[in-house]
């Protein structure tokens, strides 16, 4: 038939803008598509941020109240138990640790719920799935900034006993490294929770336990030398210590341990994206 041959010719000429195949490279990372959906990320952030505090009296103040009260509790417990704080004011010691750890913990727990939490919407419409975890990272960043603001008056108040220094310039890097680790771990967990729901429970107390093997409520310097080596396998330890050193002038880290943390964060993010890519293709069938 002549009509079919002409159609065939057209196929050869035309370029397909999208091809849906059974398998695709795990290493694809469609940044362009993600960029096209940047408005969606912004709106997700806004949704997460605004909707939570609708019909509350204190609104966004809750972001500050939580770390403040946790700090107060730790200060009381710490002074009873006489846990050393590297000779810096207890409030500042705990507050800095908690604020940074909070950012990691909330990035991790919230991104790990990506697939299960959004199953309904993912099952009905396609948009780059990564927009959801990325928006979580961003909205948590906003709450991190709010909490960071909380630290500042204390820094001013204790200005005579602490030694802020040029390492403060590294704070943006610290935030990025923490975000990458939270996102990376979160993506791995969210991809695995599709099949193994057990991880939902595991992650909840895993994060709590994680805080105790990270120098949040105690300084790394207090840990016996022979265990310090072990502690430094925890990639967050030295980042926390660096953060404290930058703001307070006290902290235990080496250049090597910082490089280790940075490299670790990149690797875990890449692994996270691989897992995520694998999972997002067919998760609607299993979730």
């Amino acid at each position: 038939m002549t009509s079919t041959t002409t159609m065939e010719e057209i196929h050869h000429e035309q370029e397909w803008s999208k091809i849906i195949k059974p398998t695709e490279s795990l290493f694809r990372f469609n940044f362009r598509e993600l960029w096209q959906y940047r408005d969606l990320i912004v709106l997700f952030v806004k949704r997460d941020f605004v909707s939570v505090y609708k019909q509350t009296v204190l609104g966004p103040l809750w972001h500050i109240i939580q770390p403040l009260f946790t700090t107060v509790v730790f200060v009381i417990l710490g002074s009873f138990a006489k846990i050393p704080t590297d000779d810096v004011p207890r409030i500042l010691f705990y507050l800095t640790g908690i604020v940074l750890w909070n950012y990691f913990a909330s990035c991790l727990t919230k991104t790990s719920g990506t697939f299960i939490g959004s199953a309904q919407i993912f099952g009905k419409v396609y948009f780059p799935r990564l927009t959801v975890p990325i928006s979580v990272i961003v909205s948590n960043l906003i709450s991190f900034f709010l909490q960071f603001m909380l630290i500042i008056p204390f820094l001013v108040f204790y200005r005579n006993t602490i030694h802020p220094n040029l390492y403060m310039l590294a704070i943006p890097v610290i935030i990025v490294v923490i975000a990458m680790m939270g996102l990376g771990f979160g993506l791995v967990v969210s991809s695995l929770t599709i099949k193994y729901r057990d991880l939902v429970f595991l992650i909840a107390f895993g994060v709590q336990l994680g805080m105790y093997v990270t120098p949040i409520i105690y300084p790394l310097s207090m840990v016996p030398i022979k265990y310090q080596m072990l502690m430094s396998f925890n990639p967050i330890s030295s980042i926390i210590e660096l953060f404290r050193y930058a703001l307070l002038g006290k902290g235990t880290f080496t250049l090597l341990s910082i490089i280790y943390s940075c490299v670790f964060s990149i690797i875990i993010l890449v692994i996270g994206i691989l897992f995520f890519n694998q999972a997002e293709r067919n998760f609607v069938d299993t979730v």
Binding site: I20, K21, P22, V125
Partner: peptide, 14 residues
């Protein structure tokens, strides 16, 4: 609509 992927075969779109 790319919500799930086919087990085999493919879809091309422009």
């Amino acid at each position: 609509s790319s919500i799930t992927s086919p087990t085999s075969g493919c879809v091309k779109m422009r």
